[in-house]
Amino acid sequence: MSSENRVTINGEAHPLPDDPRVSLLDMLRHNLGLTGTKKGCDHGQCGACTVMVNGVRINSCLTLAVMHDGDEVTTIEGLGTAEEPSALQQAFVDHDAYQCGYCTPGQICSATAMLEEIANGWPSDASENLDGTMKPSAEEIRERMSGNICRCGAYANILAAITEVASGEPA
């Protein structure tokens, strides 16, 4: 593996790992200490490891770090800080949208990308029409967030937090 290979994470370039078995998730957590991204199932079923690659949300557990030469990755650490949280981070706090909090970084990364998808007019399985403006209704948000599991069952508050940011009005 050439030392030229780099992946940019939250704006900072990092060399790719030597062992090709290292998932993007393991690179973030073990190699770089970015432990905000969580390992839940490690099989793409729970969504706790969701990050954005080139602006698109993916499961970081189901991709090899070495495949991301030249890519730009955004993790929960890149979305905001305790002092300056993103709108979704603040809304999750305001709505108590978690219990244990383990799925929360994945939920927030996923929701951040999801709001962009709705703004871009991407349809979902819940959309009545494939074309036109997509609305962040409760049904749409539930479908679009189905790749993020919350085993504490904080879904009602997660929905409220996302709805508040999506609508721009207190939910």
Binding site: G44, G47, T50, V56, R57, I58, N59, L62, T63, S110, A113, M114, E117, N120, G121, W122, P123, S124, D125, S127, L130, D131, R144, S146, G147
Partner: peptide, 28 residues
């Protein structure tokens, strides 16, 4: 699934893709 012509001319394909997996998986 989001390609304008797939949505308009081959909606069965767009619908089938959207019915599978999750957005994170479909993105990869």
């Amino acid at each position: 699934a989001v390609h304008p012509r797939v949505r308009s001319d081959y909606p069965v394909l767009a619908r089938a893709i959207l019915a599978g997996a999750t957005q994170q998986l479909r993105n990869r």
